[in-house]
Amino acid sequence: MSVLVFVEGLNGEIKKSSLEAASYGSQVAKQLGTSATAVAIGEVHEDALARLGEQGISKVLYDADERLNQFVADAYVKVIAKAAQQESAKVLVFSNTNIGAAVGSKLAVRLNGSLATNVTALPTINGSNFVVTRGVFSGKAFADVELTADVKIIAVKKNSIEVAHEGGSASVEKLSADLTEADFAAAPKETVMQETDGVLLPEAEVVVSGGRGLKGPENWHLVEDLAKALGAATACSKPVSDMDWRPHHEHVGQTGITVSPNLYIAIGISGAIQHLAGVNSSKVIVVINKDPEAPFFKAADYGIVGDAFDVVPKLIEAAKALDK
């Protein structure tokens, strides 16, 4: 019996959120006195899979079917269920991404398992008791949840677990789930990549976001220039996307994308509770606003009270100077 970790790829490499899930899964395996196996799907470099040994993964099962390069929930579920059966896995670990949450919920039904999403810490295991801590109420509180089913499925919240670097290499084995065309019947006709300058917003380590304080789309170069200097993704508040200043896939918040970067810079955003719900998992929040009473300052780690048109150009200059 092993712990099975599903890892997601991006441009042939393993996403950082999946490296965190792999680190989590290997630590759970140690608690249970067993090993951790990863399952990978689609286009991922085999040397990247082998490097999962650094996160404590002993073996990787890899299905390289080209049809899996595009996410199709039913097909992914079939592959992961096959891997779980092959490894007799009773604990399955995912990253709490859109893909992880979608696949995890379907697997919970298929395997009659217990599912916990948004998990923030290693489980407490005492005999048959298996308890995990998860974020609730948009990250404003935590709940301890006991997983009682024979199969336990855990989706780990991004940036809640440090990526391990233990050294070593994982073996890579081919996996085939004998997929048929019926497994791809629900494949989307079109894929929209939420990407800015090569940085996927949900995976970005740094996010620069703008709000109505920028006064119009013609001033968005301030956000873009700062993001470029920091190697960051760009984002926006809901009112900005509603006014078509920016595309809707850049909208972060309760009704948009939830992000958990190491650094979130908010420019000209007041900080409504709906926006905070989508960004409050960020490790460090920096707010730039000329209104000292803006609600966002209460949630900020650092705040600059000033006009964005004066402050941001200076930040861009400073960020560019760091690369010299």
Score class of each variant (00 low, 15 high):
residue 209 S to L: 05
residue 209 S to A: 15
residue 209 S to R: 03
residue 211 G to L: 11
residue 212 R to Q: 02
residue 212 R to I: 00
residue 214 L to M: 07
residue 215 K to Y: 07
residue 215 K to E: 06
residue 215 K to P: 04
residue 216 G to S: 12
residue 219 N to F: 00
residue 220 W to V: 15
residue 221 H to I: 10
residue 221 H to N: 14
residue 222 L to F: 12
residue 223 V to A: 07
residue 224 E to S: 14
residue 225 D to Y: 07
residue 226 L to F: 11
residue 227 A to N: 04
residue 228 K to T: 14
residue 228 K to M: 07
residue 228 K to F: 08
residue 228 K to E: 14
residue 229 A to S: 07
residue 231 G to Q: 00
residue 231 G to I: 00
residue 231 G to S: 04
residue 232 A to N: 02
residue 232 A to R: 00
residue 233 A to S: 15
residue 234 T to V: 15
residue 234 T to A: 06
residue 235 A to N: 10
residue 236 C to D: 06
residue 236 C to P: 00
residue 236 C to K: 08
residue 237 S to D: 05
residue 238 K to Y: 11
residue 238 K to E: 14
residue 238 K to C: 11
residue 239 P to L: 08
residue 239 P to S: 10
residue 239 P to A: 11
residue 239 P to V: 02
residue 240 V to N: 05
residue 240 V to P: 12
residue 240 V to D: 05
residue 241 S to V: 13
residue 243 M to I: 10
residue 244 D to N: 12
residue 244 D to I: 02
residue 244 D to T: 05
residue 245 W to H: 09
residue 246 R to N: 13
residue 246 R to P: 14
residue 247 P to H: 09
residue 247 P to Q: 08
residue 248 H to V: 15
residue 249 H to Q: 05
residue 249 H to F: 13
residue 249 H to A: 01
residue 251 H to R: 13
residue 251 H to S: 15
residue 253 G to H: 09
residue 253 G to R: 05
residue 254 Q to A: 14
residue 254 Q to T: 10
